[in-house]
Amino acid sequence: MSAYVVVAGDAGITEVINAAVKVGGPVTAIVVGSADLAQQVAAPGVDRVVWLGDPGDKPIEAYAPAVGALVVAAPAPVLSGRKPAERVLLGGAAAALQAPVVSSPMDVRSDNGQTVVEHGVFGGIALRTTAYDGPVAIVLDGGAAVNGGGSAAVEQAAASATTSMTVTSLQPNTATAADLGSASLVVGVGRGLKAQADLPIVEALATAMGAELGCSRPVAEGLEWLPRDRYVGISGQQIAPEVYVMVGISGALQHMGGCRGAQLIVSINTDKDAPVVSQSDYVLTGDLYSLVPAITAALS
């Protein structure tokens, strides 16, 4: 067996490499991004690094056909992270290989020449184990960044990007981009908060803990109190912190699917019958407007 790891401008692929190693070596990383990134990707577990180039004024997505052409020459399972450009490059590979796609794997292994994936279905409401005879495209959370230290040399491949797309401008995010996925402490806020003006109460707790601030989907998408990259859920950020403090979040399936990996869950909610209560390690039933400031005070 062999496997491909597709890298799209971001070294956060530790989990992708781990899964690729389980599928079976040799592992070939296909990299779109800077030369430095290609060097970083040459990490333990990676046997070969193929660098397709620096996209310059092209979006990384413009390399999807090049990735497809590369993998179709020697078909094998292809893995990538879940970020937008990673998914597009993986899609290019899946299309070229006519390969099925599987997401949210809990476990991956090679068995008798088959790739066997244990994965969530329908947004993670149930588990399924599926065996694939031929190549398969696997999309998963990338995990922490890798930084070289492996033995593979970087080979540059002659690849060209689709010429029909050009990045004409990028206004960098002024706010620091949320990095909930790798945060070890997260405070999440839900619709139990009565008004956007009350956000500082929860922000103060996050600051006192040194935690990232996350939220439920309605807070980001309906109310737009926080940016969309801060909502935790099956369709949003998947987090696995050491502690997740849920403030005014009832704990719908969609949300809990995004924080299943948390080591400890603390819930602060007025409703002692909310679904989150049975899925918490510490339950504080009461008014968040008195409890949250009290916890903030207790921390300092």
Binding site: P59, A64, G68, R87, L90, G92, A95, V101, M165
Partner: peptide
């Protein structure tokens, strides 16, 4: 809603030979 993997548009574009952006 039923799979949530967000992979359909990239694969569709790959099959069409078209670019894709999400």
């Amino acid at each position: 809603v039923d799979s949530g993997s967000r992979m359909m548009p990239p694969v569709l574009a790959g099959l069409l030979g078209w670019p894709v952006l999400s």
